[in-house]
C-alpha cells in the first residue's frame, strides 16, 4: 500500500469545489433528481386513470416480494448475469491469449474479432433473431443438416435462454478481448522467458503469471460486464424473445420496463427500481472492497 501525495488546502479552499460544480450540477439534476423522485414514487399507489396518488408505505415492496413471478425473474437474472459474465471473462481471456501470440496476421484477426463491437445491441438482437429463425435461419439450416433437428430457438424452453446467452456473449466478447490484449501486452516478455527457463509449462505460466498480472483488468471487466448484462441486455431481450416464452426469459430489468411502460404500473415499477439500485450498489461496494485488496496484492 502506498499513500498518494495530494494538494492540501494551501492551494485555496474553493478550487476543488469549483472543479466539481459543473459535473455535479449535471449529475444531480439529470440523474439524482429523477432517481429520488422515482424512489419516492415507490411509496405511492398511482390510480390507473388520472393523477391521483395515494401514500401506501411499503406495500409496493411487500407485493413485489410476494409475487412469485418477480422471484422467478430474480433467479433468472442471477443465472443470466453470472453465466454471461463468467463465460465472457473466461472466453475473452483465452481468446486474448491466442490473439496475443506472435502469429503473422494477428492484427488482421484482431480487427475481425472486434467487429461486433461496432454493431448496436438492437441490431445484433435483430441479426440473431433472424439467424436463429426456425424456418429460414442459417443456424437452423446447419442444425438440420448436421443433427437433423429443428430447434425453435426463440420460443421454447430452454432454447430461448441458450439463444439469449449466446448472442449476449457474442456481443460482449470483443470489448473484453480488447482490454485483455492491452493488459497482456504489458506483461513483460523477460518474466515469461525466465519462467520458461525454469521449466514452467504453458498452462502454469498462464495461471501463475499472466492471469494474476492482468487481475486489475479482470476486476474492471467484471464490473463493466455485470453492469452491461444487468442493464443493456434489455435491447437484446426486447428484440429477440420479449421476455418469453411465458415470462421465462424476463430479467428484472425487462420486467421493470414492462411494468413501467407497457402496463403503466408506476408504483410497482418504482419499487423495482429501488430493488435494482440496492442490488447494484451491493455488488459494486462488495466488489470495490474485495477488488481493491486483490489489486494491490496482485
Amino acid at each position: 500500500m502506498f499513500k498518494r501525495k495530494l494538494f492540501h488546502n494551501a492551494y485555496g479552499k474553493t478550487l476543488p469545489y469549483l472543479l466539481l460544480i459543473p459535473t455535479f450540477a449535471v449529475i444531480i439534476l439529470f440523474i439524482y433528481w429523477p432517481a429520488v423522485s422515482s424512489f419516492r414514487m415507490s411509496l405511492y399507489k398511482v390510480s390507473p386513470f388520472g393523477n391521483k396518488t395515494i401514500y401506501t408505505g411499503l406495500s409496493n415492496f411487500e407485493n413485489l416480494f410476494k409475487n412469485p413471478d418477480y422471484e422467478k425473474s430474480a433467479w433468472f437474472t442471477l443465472f443470466y448475469v453470472s453465466f454471461t459474465v463468467i463465460a465472457t471473462i473466461f472466453l475473452s481471456f483465452i481468446l486474448a491469449l491466442l490473439l496475443n501470440q506472435k502469429v503473422p496476421g494477428s492484427r488482421f484477426y484482431r480487427t475481425l474479432i472486434f467487429s461486433p463491437y461496432a454493431v448496436s445491441p438492437a441490431i445484433s438482437g435483430t441479426l440473431w433473431s433472424f439467424l436463429l429463425n426456425p424456418v429460414v435461419g442459417h443456424v437452423n439450416y446447419f442444425f438440420m443438416k448436421a443433427f437433423n433437428v429443428q430447434v425453435l430457438w426463440l420460443t421454447t424452453k430452454p432454447y430461448a435462454l441458450y439463444a439469449l446467452l449466446f448472442s449476449s456473449i457474442w456481443k460482449a466478447l470483443p470489448f473484453s478481448i480488447i482490454f485483455y490484449i492491452a493488459a497482456l501486452q504489458n506483461v513483460s516478455d523477460e518474466l515469461l522467458e525466465s519462467a520458461t527457463i525454469e521449466g514452467a509449462g504453458t498452462l502454469r505460466k498462464i495461471w501463475k503469471i499472466q492471469f494474476p498480472l492482468v487481475s486489475p483488468i479482470t476486476f474492471y471487466l467484471v464490473i463493466m460486464n455485470i453492469i452491461s448484462s444487468m442493464f443493456q441486455s434489455f435491447a437484446i431481450i426486447d428484440v429477440m424473445t420479449k421476455g418469453g416464452p411465458g415470462g421465462y426469459t424476463t430479467t428484472m430489468m425487462y420486467r421493470l420496463f414492462l411494468d413501467a411502460f407497457a402496463y403503466q404500473k408506476t408504483g410497482p415499477a418504482s419499487a423495482q427500481s429501488v430493488v435494482m439500485f440496492l442490488l447494484m450498489a451491493g455488488v459494486t461496494i462488495v466488489y470495490f472492497l474485495f477488488g481493491e485488496r486483490k489489486v494491490h496484492y496482485a
Binding site: F7, L19, I223, M253, T284
Partner: peptide, 30 residues
C-alpha cells in the same frame, strides 16, 4: 485525484453511485 478537501470521499461516492442507477428506472421522472 489531486486535492485533499472536506467531503471528498462523499463526492467520489456520489460519482460511483451513478453507475448503479438503471436508466430505465429514472426515465419517466427524467
Amino acid at each position: 485525484a489531486k486535492f485533499a478537501f472536506r467531503g471528498k470521499n462523499l463526492f467520489f461516492f456520489i460519482v460511483l453511485i451513478t453507475f448503479m442507477v438503471p436508466f430505465e428506472s429514472i426515465v419517466i421522472p427524467l
